[in-house]
Write a protein that binds this DNA or RNA. Structure first.
Lengths: 294, 294
DNA sequence: GGGGAGATATAGATGGAGTCTATGATAAAC
DNA sequence: GTTTATCATAGACTCCATCTATATCTCCCC
């Protein structure tokens, strides 16, 4: 390892062999001919092998030089490919973007951004990785995703959080509970109806449980489901009153298939946010995407 | 091509990625850590891409860095193989030696050298390429052989000639002409016997024709053959008197199966020589072999 | 054969890229 | 809190790649 050869010399050798002329190689490298001559000499000296025949028309590879060239040519081709790939990655003509989050946020919050992004950068592969907030955080820390989209607040010194839009959770019912339309209920009154909540381990569920607790109540759902779509479906079928994010229901509220229950207490809004690792550089693809989100 | 990247930086990048530590890479490269840090920064700046995550335990490749590494690793492996190969060629642990010449010279002159050489450098491939003197010269100039072994004199400014041993051509006969043993013949007397000569286009043939011509005679062979072995065989069978190089017959002369005809004129000796291209470097294999020959 | 046009080689000067030392900043380990 | 890793930064220095100028050689053409 003492006599490790300067790889820059191979670049000179490559061009000299390729052009068959030290003078031509010099031009291609934007240096002078003596520099090329010197570089080749260094290579020859460090191998103790003559690499070129010199004649008045230029240079030609010796037997040994030709052997060296066969390796160096491949090596340099790889480097060229690497540089091309780096340019592509930089210009977002290649790459991959991996996002963690919940399906409902993907569908109702991220979808328009993803569509626009994919249209503009069609060669960036997209991976959406479903998981709960703690799972998403774990994926982030393990480097399995570039960014996570979750409900705030997130308190973790390792994470950088960018706030997104505000979401308002609310209780909704379908035609079966039409008598409640226009009325303002107390929490106590609400609890007399069958309640449908998201499954126990979600953040939204914990938030609403805590809110009721603050008011001295203990909310117990009739039904627990595992997706926002089911919350909506069950409410529409009249199986109960669902607690769900209002922004995810705009279609049903417009149609009138579901209506919002008015309460005498304010349900705190939540905010969606984009998490990335603090002190860890984002890929070009991820950096650009984060700037899309407002 | 303006922003051609210094390939030396890839060597640093490679080791940094491989060891996962700028400090370790620095040690392997016998430079200091800030130099490595600087080199990586240059690479990152010229790509406009972050290649490593830095943390207090070392460095880890980013997504893009890992892509670059996959190329550079291959490239560097090729360079290592190239350097290994060069060392082998230098130490004559690999390579090829191509020699041009006549079969008789290969067999009777070069064989012992070839044996010894091959024993010492078993991994050098040997190619013996048969041809007449002008053919051998052509092969040399075309680069198809490293050196040629032929009868001197050779006059060609492009060729470098190293003189070898002296050979003496002579006329020999077998038991059938036993009456000639011990006698001294004139050329005229000799010509009364059937003569066996090498085929018309050989140098030896031309030389003897010219010699007879100088003495006013025109030698016409009874038989013409294409190899030294046949000259010897035919003489042994008593088909005539062969003109052949004495050194190629030592076995037959010792055994007494053939004897040399004494003449009243001196037959000029010829010298064997090794030709190489002037001003063209020899391969390590060829250089070493030429030094074997004395 | 002389001279021009091309090639590479050589010598010596020069400047800047790469390297060093010293230090800072940060995180983890103890 | 202290120590010991890590990488980053700043500024000085130095060595080596490069340059200019010239030599040498070969071919080719007049």
């Amino acid at each position: 390892m003492e006599s490790m050869i300067n790889h820059e010399l191979y670049k000179v050798f490559y061009l000299a062999a390729k052009t068959g002329s030290l003078t031509q190689a010099a031009k291609a490298l934007y240096i002078t001919q003596p520099s090329v001559s010197h570089a080749i000499k260094q290579l020859e000296d460090s191998f103790g092998i003559t690499l070129f025949y010199r004649n008045s028309k230029g240079v030609a590879l010796t037997q040994e030089g030709a052997i060296l060239y066969s390796y160096i040519e491949q090596s340099n081709i790889l480097i060229s490919l690497a540089e091309k790939k780096m340019a592509e990655l930089k210009n977002l003509e290649a790459g991959e973007l991996k996002i963690g989050g919940s399906d409902s946020l993907f569908k109702h919050y991220l979808l328009p951004y993803l569509e626009k992004y994919h249209k503009q950068y069609p060669f960036i592969g997209l991976s959406l990785i479903h998981g709960t907030t703690p799972e998403v955080i774990t994926y982030l820390k393990e480097g399995r995703i570039d960014l996570g989209v979750v409900r705030l607040p997130i308190v973790d010194p390792q994470l950088e959080v960018k706030e997104g839009i505000e979401l308002q959770d609310c209780f909704v019912a379908g035609a079966h509970f039409a008598e409640l339309k226009g009325k303002v209920l107390t929490l106590e009154q609400l609890m007399e109806y069958p309640i449908i909540l998201f499954s126990r381990n979600s953040r939204a569920r914990m938030a609403i449980t805590e809110l009721f607790h603050d008011y001295g109540y203990d909310i117990k759902p009739e039904i627990e489901v595992g997706s926002v779509d089911l919350l909506i479906e069950f409410a529409k079928k009249g199986l109960g009153i669902s607690y769900v994010t209002r922004e995810f229901l705009s279609k049903e509220l417009d149609e009138g298939t579901l209506f919002e229950i008015q309460l005498d207490v304010h349900l705190p809004p939540s905010r969606v946010g984009v998490m990335t690792m603090r002190n860890v550089p984002l890929s070009s693809a991820a950096k650009t995407f984060v700037e899309y989100i407002r």
